[in-house]
Simulated assay, not measured.
Amino acid sequence: MPAASLADTDPLQVLVYADSLSWGIVPGTRQRLPFPVRWPGRLELALNADRGTPVRIIEDCLNGRRTVWDDPFKPGRNGLQGLAQRIEIHSPLALVVLMLGNNDFQSMHPHNAWHASQGIGALVQAIRSAPIEPGMPVPSVLVVVPPPIRTPRGPLAPKFAGGEHKWTGLPQAVAELCAQLDCPMFDAGTVIHSSAVDGVHLDADAHVALGDALHPVVRELLPR
């Protein structure tokens, strides 16, 4: 048999760079939803069902990840640190889906929607300028704005106290930023809500709905 070429074997790779909303934490627990249910998995399955070229979703979703700020209690939650190297590690990438922002509004931070949008902008620039091997593509970036924080409940209540107010205006601030950067954006709050259980994370049905909503958006951004 002839050796398979790279075109025969290598899928298009999409990196999801995100936090616990995409990791798939079950609200009110420390459990994780299964891959076919959480939105990156739902998206991969849908893309592979209707494309000739296979697609692989790479999940890089860290609980508590901010855009560009440190967590004073847990190391490694600054999303800017190591991002360029992640792009290099996973290259070639066809697309990076960036869904961060809500952890910027934890109670230990004074940030508002404008601050978070600027953090997102720094991440987009880092992705676009990351070191990659010669001839490999600079991936496109899709910014997904997370849904609004509700009144935080349960163990998350002190961590996210006041977060629902700090979040206000995030879609508008990110839309303005993405227009300046010529970067596509999707507002998850137009199709899903945060869980009523803890006010922050996503229930299983929200994951499914978000994966389904992102399917046509991502499909159009991938090379044909």
Rank of each mutant, 00 (worst) to 15 (best):
P2Y: 05
A4E: 05
L6A: 11
A7Y: 03
L12R: 13
W23N: 06
G24D: 04
G24K: 00
I25E: 11
Q31G: 15
Q31N: 14
R38Q: 01
W39S: 06
P40V: 08
L43E: 02
E44I: 14
L45M: 14
A49E: 15
V55Q: 13
V55I: 12
D60K: 00
L62R: 08
T67N: 03
V68C: 11
D71A: 01
F73Q: 09
F73A: 11
P75F: 08
N78W: 10
L80M: 11
Q81C: 14
Q85F: 10
I89C: 03
H90D: 13
H90A: 11
H90C: 11
A94V: 05
L95I: 14
V96W: 05
V96S: 02
G101T: 13
D104Y: 02
Q106F: 00
S107T: 09
H109T: 10
H115N: 12
H115L: 02
S117G: 12
G121C: 02
G121V: 03
A122V: 03
V124C: 04
I127E: 08
A130I: 12
P137S: 04
P139D: 08
P139W: 13
P139V: 13
L142R: 04
V144M: 01
P147D: 06
P147G: 03
P155L: 05
F160Y: 15
A161H: 11
G169Q: 13
P171R: 13
Q172E: 15
A175F: 12
E176F: 01
L177M: 15
C178G: 07
Q180Y: 07
P184C: 03
P184D: 05
A188C: 00
H193A: 07
H193S: 13
S194L: 08
S195H: 13
A196H: 13
G199P: 10
G199M: 03
L202F: 03
A209K: 09
L214Y: 01
R219N: 14
L221F: 12
